[in-house]
Design a binder for these strands. Structure first.
Lengths: 341, 341
DNA sequence: AAATATATGGAAAACGTTTTCCTAAATTTG
DNA sequence: CAAATTTAGGAAAACGTTTTCCATATATTT
């Protein structure tokens, strides 16, 4: 039925192994023979059977991307697809494909990863830190199975991971504010139980303090990350006797609320009051004016993860360290260099 | 190195073919033998090599999901991941995996699809209507290659597709408004070049007219889908001598703007003015009050696509028709049953 | 001119299953 | 009780490549 390497060999008058060598650009084939083979391939419209190649090479050219998938995933985790796209686009360069695998129904963390490794259905594995346990982690390290963990795992190991650093992003926020000459800055955060919010707050407050601009307690407000509470927070801050010159909003939803609150006061941004926020998604696109953002680009994080994966695929014994994706400042119109009078 | 079916056979004292039959639940194996084999499998911690199974079965148990992937994909196409998750979760039930494949760099529509089919690297293909051409389409049909097209292709064929119906969603909007006794309704749409916007508008205006509530030209405003223009549109509408009782917003960004505009007028929703919008993503989550939404759930669309795919995988000769994902009304607080006085 | 090195391409094993027969034993039937 | 049927399990082919050797022919060196 389907045309195989043998058909090509017969038509070209060579052996199947020669065809294979031509296909894989071996140097031991003369240009003349190669041309004959290519001619036959063209005539027969031959494509190697990927399943047979996988089998013979003992490699699927597939990488598994494990994450917990639920209904409305994009809503709950707007970043995951971006990470995945970054990984994909990097792996694609070396002809690897990315398989989306759900880890949400596993009975213990690491079950899915284990299955993939033992089945050998993928050459490598990209997995969220929460979907892996210590035993599988150690297995990955011991077997030198190419892997990269998104977000560092909550157990110590010699796994290779890549993570964001939200405290650092908080420090970036402080640095930007100070560089604009805003030294009287407030912080509107999310819930105190929200780890990311807490880290950003710590980084921000820490660096402000280090520069000598300690942020008073009254300039730090925690909300439920809703637009309404954030707007109220902005109104509270701006009605103080000593209102802040700028506000750091812990996420884009808060920023949307804060910008709304500011609008209500009639003050103009950034002339009277400046603000910045973190993350491009999901809401910064509808905030007016276009906000200055400290962004941790998830696509870039995916690209980095992909690069690490490619290196590990090439050399599984490679001792690769772990990485942190650096935040990036996206200058918008909600902050500007301020010539304080 | 790795333990194979032969090791299991040797330990269990049977032939490899018997082990295979046990693995695949053949009925021609006695319970006693099966137990012996399972025992050996357990002892050796054996897992069949997926690459070898793929090869022997001539099936990869992989389905390719083709879409044009770019940087910031989630931002540009917030729906794609939801569709993908829906497809995934459905396919997972029959142990199929989903491979994410980029079609953005192909030199002609259908190139990527062709490659996958000729390589036999997937058992089926889910592809966006824009990433396929007529010749590949006909090839899919002729070869009975399991496929499902997301969004119907722009050429006629006997392909199997699944699509949304935005005109129908527009009709749903009209129906809901009328059922609330809002008969004086305005429409704020996107650009006239935006196909989805135009379809929703046509459906909405059409049904309003059919019910005898023709919407005057002056109650239809086109914007660039920005928050600013949408807010301005709302202000324009509400300052007319005969302002609308309700507004249909063509997308969530417009709805965000309209709600902002309404807020500026000081009118209350839905007491004085009602509105509804389409799509849950990306912005409806931050609109206040919680809007009534005509939603076309993309995850559900993916689930439907996955179901069709499973049926085609089981029986490739199946003549499956194409499907339309129906819109769903999500009642929010921006509309209510109105007792007009 | 003989000896050695190099270039080219083929034969055959290997990859690890599944699946199609086929056989021998066990069971049923007349 | 013999013949027919059913059952259980094994032998071997098949799936389509890659890759390791090996053989031959040609080129190079002494």
């Amino acid at each position: 039925m389907a045309v195989t390497i043998n058909d090509v060999a017969r038509l070209a008058g060579v052996s199947p192994s020669t065809v294979s060598k031509v296909l894989n650009n071996w140097s031991t084939i003369s240009p003349a023979t190669a041309e004959k083979v290519h001619e036959a391939i063209r005539k027969l419209d031959y494509t190697p059977n990927a399943r047979a190649v996988s089998f013979a090479r003992q490699s699927t050219k597939n990488i598994a991307f494990l994450t917990a998938i639920t209904r409305n995933e994009a809503y709950k985790n707007p970043h995951m697809f971006d990470i995945m796209c970054g990984v994909h686009n990097e792996l694609e360069k070396e002809n690897y494909s990315l398989m989306l695998i759900d880890s949400s129904r596993e009975t213990y963390p690491g079950e899915t990863a284990e299955k993939i490794i033992s089945q050998k259905s993928a050459d490598g594995i990209v997995v969220h830190g929460s979907a892996i346990n210590e035993s599988v982690g150690n297995y990955l390290v011991k077997r030198q199975f190419p892997h990269i963990i998104i977000g560092h795992p909550n157990f110590s190991s010699r796994l290779c991971w890549i993570d964001t650093n939200h405290a650092l992003a908080g420090e970036f926020a402080a640095e930007h504010m100070i560089s604009c000459n805003y030294t009287n800055v407030a912080f509107v955060g999310g819930r105190k139980s929200d780890l990311i919010s807490v880290q950003r707050e710590r980084g921000f407050l820490g660096l402000m303090g280090k520069y000598g601009y300690r942020v008073p307690q009254s300039h730090v407000i925690h909300t439920d990350s809703s637009v309404g509470e954030a707007a109220a927070a902005a109104l509270t801050l701006l009605s103080k006797k000593n209102p802040p010159r700028a506000i750091v909003c812990e996420n884009s939803q808060i920023a949307l609320g804060v910008s709304k609150g500011i609008e209500k006061t009639g003050k103009s941004v950034p002339k009277d009051i400046a603000f910045l926020t973190f993350d491009t998604y999901p809401y910064s696109g509808v905030i007016e004016p276009k906000p200055t953002i400290i962004d941790i680009n998830m696509y870039d994080m995916g690209v980095q993860a992909g690069q690490v994966m490619l290196r590990k695929l090439e050399n599984p014994s490679l001792q690769v360290q772990s990485y942190t994706t650096l935040p990036v400042l996206l200058q918008g119109e909600s902050t500007e260099m301020w010539e304080s009078s």
